[in-house]
């Protein structure tokens, strides 16, 4: 007779199966060396919403949306949106290390538009002052206390509503701002 034989093989089978369901995910999490937890944290983090006219400290500066103007678009059914925003420098080194920016215009349906590569001709014509302002990607960090004024133009359909400016700096990710 085999003394090592399991008297309750069915029970052991189910216990082993249940243990596998726990041990396997734990093994994956441990093996990822924290990267999986970081990824989940970033994936489920929502941007900080900044109310109209308010400012928010982020990545070494205090950010504020100063204007969101609709201008006539060159293509039928389109509008050019000129977004003007500023960053009051709080920590020069941190801001410099956080560039470049990832900027998008977001509507109430969650659609996202990237800025135009060149300044739209209608912006040059109707708002030449704004056309001179740097993009977030081309702006250079100034000294503490300085304010960097920037502008970006977007081509969007006329029916887009509830517009907000989504702003993220690579050095500040996974945090980001949603400026109303």
């Amino acid at each position: 007779m085999d003394v090592s034989a399991n008297p309750h093989p069915r029970k052991s089978y189910w216990l082993s199966l249940a243990a596998l369901a726990v041990v396997l995910p734990v093994a994956i999490v441990v093996h990822s060396q924290g990267e999986l937890i970081q990824w989940l944290r970033a994936a489920f983090r929502s941007p900080t919403t900044v109310e109209k006219g308010a400012s928010q400290s982020y990545a070494g500066a205090d950010w504020r949306l100063t204007g969101l103007a609709r201008l006539p678009g060159a293509l039928p059914g389109t509008t050019v949106v000129l977004a003007e925003y500023e960053a009051a420098v709080e920590d020069e080194a941190r801001l410099r290390d956080s560039f470049p920016c990832k900027l998008a215009l977001v509507d109430d349906r969650g659609r996202r538009w990237k800025g135009t590569f060149m300044v739209d001709p209608v912006v040059r014509k109707m708002r030449p002052d704004a056309a001179q302002k740097p993009h977030c990607g081309t702006a250079e960090a100034s000294r503490k206390g300085d304010t960097i004024r920037m502008a970006e133009s977007f081509v969007i359909p006329q029916d887009a509503d509830g517009l907000m400016l989504s702003l993220a700096l690579y050095g500040g990710m996974p945090d980001s701002l949603l400026l109303k």
Partner: peptide, 8 residues
Amino acid sequence: NEQFEPGI
């Protein structure tokens, strides 16, 4: 050569 936009 072209960037396509939502809704356009």
